[in-house]
Nucleic acid binder design. Sequence first.
DNA 1: AATAATATTGCAAAAAACAGCAAATTGTTA
DNA 2: TAACAATTTGCTGTTTTTTGCAATATTATT
Lengths: 249, 249
Amino acid sequence: MLKEERHLTILNEVALHNRVLLSDLADILKVSIDTVRRDVTALDEENKLRKVHGGAIALGYASYSPRHSNIYALDQKIQIAKKASSFLRDGSVVLIDGGTTCLELARVIPENLKLTCFTLSLPVALELLKKPNVEVIFIGGKLSKDAQISIGANAVQHLSEIQVDFGFIGTGYVDPEGGLTEFDWDIVQVKKAVIAASKKTVLLSISEKLNSKHRYKTCDVTAIDIMITELDASDSLLNAFKNKEIHLL
Amino acid sequence: MLKEERHLTILNEVALHNRVLLSDLADILKVSIDTVRRDVTALDEENKLRKVHGGAIALGYASYSPRHSNIYALDQKIQIAKKASSFLRDGSVVLIDGGTTCLELARVIPENLKLTCFTLSLPVALELLKKPNVEVIFIGGKLSKDAQISIGANAVQHLSEIQVDFGFIGTGYVDPEGGLTEFDWDIVQVKKAVIAASKKTVLLSISEKLNSKHRYKTCDVTAIDIMITELDASDSLLNAFKNKEIHLL
DNA sequence: AATAATATTGCAAAAAACAGCAAATTGTTA
DNA sequence: TAACAATTTGCTGTTTTTTGCAATATTATT
């Protein structure tokens, strides 16, 4: 395999899951961890991702730059965001999670829609502030450097005090059997709290993430009320989710 | 086989598979690897593909756009920020307000400095997240659309629960007699809370704002412990502040 | 503080690139 | 056709790049 190919694959993985472990990459690419490390170092120097201890994260992972240019699978995410926005009504009180797909949802909110939006994502908050008729409430707390969202006991505590009509969440990985999983334990805690704070939980995920798992579990797929991908609800890729009492869209 | 034929075959392979190994090409074309190398070099120079170590890849294949950073440098504010940063020590717990000057302060924090930073400004928080040794805690609440900071009872309440070594604040207007004033009432409430939460309050203000007032009052200038402008402390423009028990810098 | 995980560094083997050269091919001209 | 130059091609030895390994340092985690 060519080095360039590996670089592409790495960027792909990073763009898809926002963060990856060097060990996972070595596994995927079937090369030594040293090689992956060197690749990631090179990509870091090219400013195409950020190398962190043990792995790499996407730069501008939901960065506040107004340009969409470096968001992975943007078209699909916009498609998902548009589907998700169909749930919004004047006066709705919603909670929007972090991640690039949720960021797109924030972007596509119509200018004239009157909403109350809670969020714990800095980029999402900034995006929501551009909407004149959206009241934005930020759930404070310790901030995660990677995900740029509030994490920790404080955020969880605050979330426990609210109840919203819809909670729009993303996930690192989703699998019909393994449920929603994440790379990061702190993120899982917050996502659990988000789900608990939502009357209806809406999962936004591009189809590429289907059937992938990771270390920490947020919840079973049955905890999700509505699942939105860029695919048609009848798509066979979604078959495994069809008998789970989830509304597919 | 003619050179042109080989070139076409190579381009075809690249177009088809996005990548090609020189060894494979040599095999397919039944020529030495050197010849293939020369062919690929030529095609690279013609910009019909990209030659990489061990093979070639299609042009559009690796097209991840690098990031763009829009750094707008206001000299005076950076100057102020640098002066302000001299107060920071390893282990300091500080609170950084919103506004462009405070944002510059967040920017100039040294990479190796270990800090705990509270803030209620979205842009400041994002900037602080870039510092590896800074723990960032965001004071949540309703967000102000123009100031991009937390305002309202929630934010004030949270501020009342903390105590920091230094509170770095900006202000809309400052006057030796009229004190610190603002255009917006909500902002004033938050700034009052910030001052109350700070053992020492540091005002960052460019000299242009000196001797200006507005409608709502945050505090008297005597409530400020340290005042930093881009001017030298002995500058005559600061005369009016010199008998106010303020440390000028 | 102890332990595990990850980084760093230096090194050696393998692969690839490079430079020079000679044989083979092609095109031109006498 | 023969001679010749120009180009192409394959080969050789050398240099550079890549990759994996191991020893050591650094960083997280408990």
